[in-house]
Computed example of a mutant assay.
Amino acid sequence: MIGVSVVAYFAYHTVHGDRGLVALTHLQSEVARAQSTLDQVRGEREELERRASLLRPDNLDPDLLEERARAVLNQSHPDDLVILLPRRSAPQSTQGNPDQGR
């Protein structure tokens, strides 16, 4: 009876323990989510590095320079067609917001 109890104890903790099979699948799903986040951030960084390289003095792209100048100066050419896109919403802080709840 004691032997069966010991085997049952270890079998239970093999599946449901802190380092069991359930914990393993949970950790694997967290690693997969972290990997997808890393891939997304890496892609964004590479795009920013590519755009920054186009603004270097030794490799200046006139179109990108004009685009950045117009964005900074908030101006456009009279023949330009302007399409306003919605901005990405950033997480908003609720602390210190006097208009909250109105």
Rank of each mutant, 00 (worst) to 15 (best):
1 M>Q: 13
1 M>S: 11
1 M>G: 11
2 I>D: 09
2 I>S: 08
2 I>F: 07
2 I>H: 09
2 I>E: 07
3 G>V: 06
3 G>R: 11
3 G>W: 06
4 V>W: 14
4 V>P: 01
5 S>N: 09
6 V>A: 12
7 V>R: 15
8 A>D: 14
8 A>K: 12
11 A>Q: 15
12 Y>I: 13
12 Y>R: 15
12 Y>H: 15
13 H>T: 15
13 H>I: 14
13 H>G: 14
14 T>L: 15
15 V>W: 08
15 V>F: 09
16 H>V: 07
19 R>E: 14
20 G>T: 00
21 L>F: 14
21 L>P: 00
21 L>I: 15
22 V>Q: 09
23 A>C: 05
24 L>K: 15
25 T>C: 07
25 T>D: 13
25 T>H: 11
26 H>W: 09
26 H>V: 11
27 L>P: 00
27 L>R: 14
28 Q>L: 13
29 S>Y: 09
30 E>F: 02
31 V>C: 04
31 V>I: 12
32 A>H: 08
33 R>P: 00
34 A>C: 06
34 A>F: 05
35 Q>M: 08
36 S>Q: 13
37 T>W: 09
38 L>Q: 11
38 L>W: 10
38 L>F: 12
39 D>H: 01
39 D>C: 01
40 Q>M: 07
40 Q>I: 02
41 V>D: 03
42 R>N: 13
42 R>P: 00
43 G>H: 04
45 R>W: 08
45 R>S: 12
46 E>C: 05
46 E>M: 09
50 R>V: 03
50 R>Y: 02
51 R>S: 08
51 R>M: 08
52 A>Q: 07
53 S>V: 01
53 S>F: 03
54 L>E: 06
54 L>Q: 04
56 R>C: 04
56 R>I: 05
57 P>E: 04
57 P>I: 02
58 D>N: 10
59 N>G: 05
60 L>W: 03
60 L>I: 06
61 D>N: 02
62 P>N: 01
62 P>Y: 02
63 D>L: 06
63 D>R: 08
65 L>F: 01
66 E>Y: 01
66 E>W: 05
66 E>F: 03
66 E>A: 07
68 R>G: 00
69 A>C: 03
70 R>M: 04
70 R>Q: 07
71 A>F: 02
71 A>H: 05
72 V>C: 02
72 V>S: 05
73 L>M: 04
73 L>I: 02
73 L>G: 00
74 N>S: 13
75 Q>A: 08
75 Q>E: 12
76 S>Q: 11
77 H>V: 00
77 H>N: 05
79 D>S: 10
79 D>H: 08
80 D>G: 01
81 L>M: 11
81 L>N: 11
82 V>I: 14
82 V>F: 05
84 L>C: 08
84 L>E: 14
84 L>N: 10
84 L>D: 10
85 L>R: 07
86 P>D: 03
86 P>H: 00
88 R>M: 06
89 S>I: 03
89 S>D: 06
90 A>T: 03
90 A>Y: 04
91 P>I: 01
91 P>R: 05
93 S>P: 00
93 S>T: 08
94 T>K: 10
94 T>A: 12
96 G>N: 05
96 G>Y: 01
96 G>W: 02
97 N>C: 10
98 P>S: 06
98 P>C: 03
99 D>E: 14
100 Q>P: 01
100 Q>V: 09
101 G>E: 07
102 R>W: 11
102 R>Q: 13
